[in-house]
Design a protein around this nucleic acid. Sequence first.
DNA 1: GAGTGTAACT
Length: 228
Amino acid sequence: MEQTNCKPSIVTYSTIIDSLCKDKLIDDAFKLFKEMVFEKGILPNVISYTSLICGLCKLGRWDEASKMLKEMEDENISPNVQTFNVLVDAFCKEGKVEEAEAVINIMIETGSAQNIVPDIVTYSSLIDGYCLRGEMIKAREIFDSITLRGLVPDVVTYSSLLNGYCKNLNVEKVVQLFREISGKGLKPDVVTCNTMLQGLFQVGCCVAAHKLFNEMHAQGRIPDRCTY
DNA sequence: GAGTGTAACT
């Protein structure tokens, strides 16, 4: 591309930077980022910064992530909902739900002027975080608060909560919630089904599990490696 | 007019 008239753009660079971050090759990502800025004179945007922050958070390099946020501020690039969601999710995955809640409070208190309002991804991450800690009452509380905020739980929100109940061996809630998904007009996807399968087998409901597996085939939801 | 970033199962 560099040899043609079709020079790599901010989108080209961001695509590669994001891929490197996802492969945990954060140093290579930064190398490319610096090449883009200092050699090519292409200004980074909120997307390239969010990718880098995501990569740093997933490696637990919180100080550097915070440094990048500061750098964005200096460059007058405002973080948006997705930038904050990356932080919320990373904290939740680390079991740092309190920190995640703090980020959400910042979003609520200071973000509304810039159209930054926690969305369904934010709360799905938080539910997942509480589920990972086995705090199902809290997870349920967040789930119930979603509607009050005018948001609509999607299949990921349901699957996260479902996974929590499965790990908790709460069969009653699992069955109830799984029915509710279809009842709300949502379609359980392969991840939802895999979660259910694991839950059903764990409590010895092998017949129900096989029935669900067969239904997956019938409804064209292709089983994947996790299913098997 | 288009293209890049966030959440669930293993």
